[in-house]
Simulated assay, not measured.
Amino acid sequence: MSKPFDMELFVAGVLTGSYATRQRHVRQAKFIQAEIAERWQRATPWTWQRKHVAWFLEHRISQRSEATRYYYVLTARLLARRLKTSWVFNL
């Protein structure tokens, strides 16, 4: 039996800032992971491609406020930094 992927541990290395900011990034990263896993059956960020995260940002949260979308873009950039990729996400 395999353990579920621990997103908090995954992003811990790139998180900075206050406790509330770190918790927001962890919560949003878990939400991104859940949506991508449901849509494409990609359970871990190591299996993601840029198109998966771009889909989430463009389609899944498109009806949210501009501020909320901005914070999700920041979280997506943190995930890309942790994956050591050159993905660029704009608003």
Rank of each mutant, 00 (worst) to 15 (best):
M1F: 10
P4V: 14
P4Q: 10
F5I: 01
E8V: 02
E8S: 10
E8Q: 12
V11G: 06
A12Y: 05
V14M: 12
L15S: 06
T16A: 15
T16F: 15
T16Y: 13
S18L: 05
Y19I: 10
T21S: 13
R22A: 13
R22D: 05
Q23D: 10
R24T: 13
R24Q: 09
Q28Y: 02
Q28R: 14
A29H: 05
K30L: 09
F31D: 08
F31N: 10
I32T: 04
E35Y: 04
E35I: 14
I36N: 00
I36F: 00
I36A: 01
E38G: 11
E38P: 14
W40E: 05
Q41S: 11
Q41W: 03
Q41L: 03
A43K: 12
A43R: 06
A43C: 13
A43V: 07
T44P: 00
T44H: 06
P45N: 02
P45V: 00
W46V: 10
W48P: 03
R50G: 04
R50S: 08
H52A: 09
W55C: 09
L57C: 06
L57D: 01
L57P: 03
L57F: 02
E58S: 14
E58C: 12
H59A: 13
R60H: 10
R60L: 10
I61D: 03
I61Y: 02
S62E: 12
Q63N: 15
Q63F: 03
R64S: 13
S65D: 09
S65K: 08
A67W: 06
A67T: 15
R69C: 04
Y71W: 07
Y72K: 02
Y72D: 03
V73I: 08
L74C: 12
L74I: 12
T75Y: 00
A76W: 00
A76P: 00
L79T: 01
R82P: 04
K84Y: 07
K84M: 10
T85K: 14
T85Q: 12
T85N: 11
S86D: 15
S86N: 15
W87F: 08
W87M: 03
V88L: 13
F89H: 04
F89S: 06
